[in-house]
Design a binder for these strands. Structure first.
Lengths: 121, 121
DNA sequence: CTGTATCCTGAATGATACTG
DNA sequence: CAGTATCATTCAGGATACAG
């Protein structure tokens, strides 16, 4: 039962760390979830929907999601420019698991907060 | 379809952000996963298993997990002291979803990396 | 409108020394 | 062994200005 423990210490290969490193940032999951709620969304709408993300981080986050094939970016060569983002199938397949995690959190956050207060009392 | 979008901008209440804030740190999930692989584990064993976590962060992470009721801490009043950590049922219920996420990552990381290289080429 | 380019800050984390 | 206390560091992210 203990033999597979060493994978956790292999910083480069450890799959857990890969996920955490990739999606543990502040905005990736949130952006993905917003895009999961709509057919597509323009840059500015995303910006306003999330509210407190900076323009820079929205760009960075979207670029990374696009690079990873989780989001598709479509430029319409108009003036002023229009750019639409939509989640890909791969993105949706990830979102399924994310949603379950969020659902779990919804169900358990109250109990967790209660535990925490008791602990700090 | 677009009416529920505003929850994402409600920084305080947004469930997604709560999860991300709580578990988006560097070590919580990893520690939980290690404890999910064993019946229980002592502090030093955890330290060695993970390898590159500092003593301080291991303590902080374990305390937070304990406060949230995801990990149970048992002190054996011996000399030298022995402290054992074990995952709780609540912790396990979370771990189920984490594991699915990691499984997804295992299945998709290659494709993601391939996408990323194409994108950066 | 959809970005880029800089500079800058703070919070999370690490390093180190010390202790019951 | 299992921590705590301090100080140092880093880098993700924000603010701002500018541009096609």
């Amino acid at each position: 039962m203990e033999n597979n423990l060493e994978i956790f210490s292999h910083f480069e290969e450890c799959p857990v760390r890969k996920v955490l490193n990739r999606f543990g940032d502040k905005w990736s999951i949130l952006v993905l979830m917003v895009l999961g709620e709509v057919d597509n969304m323009r840059f500015n709408k995303l910006h306003k929907t999330i509210g407190d993300i900076s323009q820079k981080m929205l760009t960075v986050t979207l670029r990374t999601l696009e690079a990873d094939g989780l989001v598709k970016r479509t430029i319409f060569p108009e003036i002023p420019p229009r750019v639409e983002y939509e989640i890909t199938d791969r993105g949706r397949s990830l979102l399924i698991h994310i949603n379950k995690l969020v659902f779990w959190a919804d169900e358990n956050m109250d109990a967790i907060l209660e535990s925490r207060e008791k602990f700090n009392a």
